[in-house]
Design a protein around this nucleic acid. Structure first.
Length: 315
DNA sequence: CGCATTTGACCTGCGC
DNA sequence: GCGCAGGTCAAATGCG
């Protein structure tokens, strides 16, 4: 009984995470398009490889991991800057992916009416997505990128200075969502930080906008970790790790804003002075069995390119 | 004292 | 029009 409920919760997490218009498909695409030396690894062929490489299964919900490994993908997960295209394969496919993941596991019994209701809800969501929505013209069309990070601290240090300007309770989630704004004047970058309602150890950080300034030197003496020390075999350029911009921004510049699956900055920056985030660093190093990456506990973050809601660009 | 956080109020978009 | 939910504002408060 408990097992079933647990499974439901996991599936619910999958649905809620990847059916949202900001997540669906994009997350999968991000996983598929992993930057490496000389470009990106072919997304379709390397899905499982990437995930194993990054040790996702070690920190991802099992059902989510299965979901991501399941080759039930949009036929052409082409990344586009057009929100319409990005959103198109999102909703319906996410449903099939989600359910197939359930079938893949030995948990078909969990396909109860509750799950059907979930699917109905998702279908309703999909319907809503298909409707042309009026959006506030003031709402920026800035790119949004979301990181899923397993951490016990909510606000991860990414090198920039943030000022919290709000906190809101999120529906269907016991955890509030915090709103941060870059403290640099004239820089309108925002980020939202919330904890997954189904796995409280997962922090979802959504960046919105692009910094108009270099990363400030923090008094904590942050440094960047070289890929070699992460167990990388040089597949990711060193500059990506020392660049004073968050990885999503680097990648925007280097790869024409394609989303990618990558270890985001929060886990890459550490305090050498052991002053502010010793526990964070400690927590990030989760001993594990199989991979070097996991040994370092660094590659525990999933970047999910999150598109601004379908904004009425043409109008 | 300056800066960051907290938190209730307010605004806006959307569905019914 | 009303209610709900997400997002933002700004005064009060806390902290170094």
């Amino acid at each position: 009984m408990e097992k079933i409920e647990e499974t439901k919760a996991e599936n619910s997490m999958v649905n809620s995470t990847f059916s949202d218009q900001n997540w669906t498909g994009l997350g999968l695409q991000g996983i598929l398009d992993m930057p490496c030396e000389g470009g990106t690894i072919n997304q379709k062929a390397s899905l499982g490889f990437n995930m194993d490489m990054f040790g996702i299964q070690d920190y991802c919900d099992p059902s989510l991991f299965d979901l991501l490994r399941t080759p039930v993908m949009p036929p052409h997960p082409v990344v586009s800057e057009s929100p319409e295209i990005i959103n198109t394969p999102a909703t319906p496919n996410s449903l099939s992916v989600s359910s197939s993941s359930t079938e893949a596991n030995d948990e078909q019994q969990t396909k109860t009416t509750a799950e059907e209701q979930e699917q109905e809800q998702e279908q309703e969501k999909a319907k809503k997505l298909l409707k042309p929505k009026k959006k506030n013209p003031k709402r920026a069309t800035e790119p949004r990128f979301a990181f899923m990070t397993r951490s016990e601290v909510d606000h991860l240090d990414d090198g920039y200075r943030w000022r919290k300007y709000g906190q809101k309770a999120v529906k269907n989630s016991p955890f509030p969502r915090s709103y941060y704004r870059c403290t640099t004047p004239s820089c309108g970058v925002k980020k939202r930080v919330e904890r997954s309602s189904d796995d409280r150890s997962i922090v979802v950080t959504t960046y919105e906008g692009t910094h108009t300034h270099p990363c400030p030197v923090t008094p904590r003496g942050n440094i960047a970790i070289m890929p070699e020390s992460l167990g990388f075999s040089g597949n990711i350029s060193t500059s990506s790790f020392v660049h004073p911009q968050p990885p999503y921004q680097q990648f925007q510049q280097q790869h024409h804003q394609q989303p990618y699956f990558h270890n985001p900055t929060p886990s890459l920056r550490f305090s050498t002075t052991n002053s502010s985030f010793p526990t964070f660093q400690e927590r990030q190093f989760r001993p594990s069995s199989s991979s070097l990456l996991r040994d370092n506990g660094l590659l525990q973050d999933m970047i999910v390119p999150s598109q601004e809601r379908k904004e009425p660009k043409e109008e």
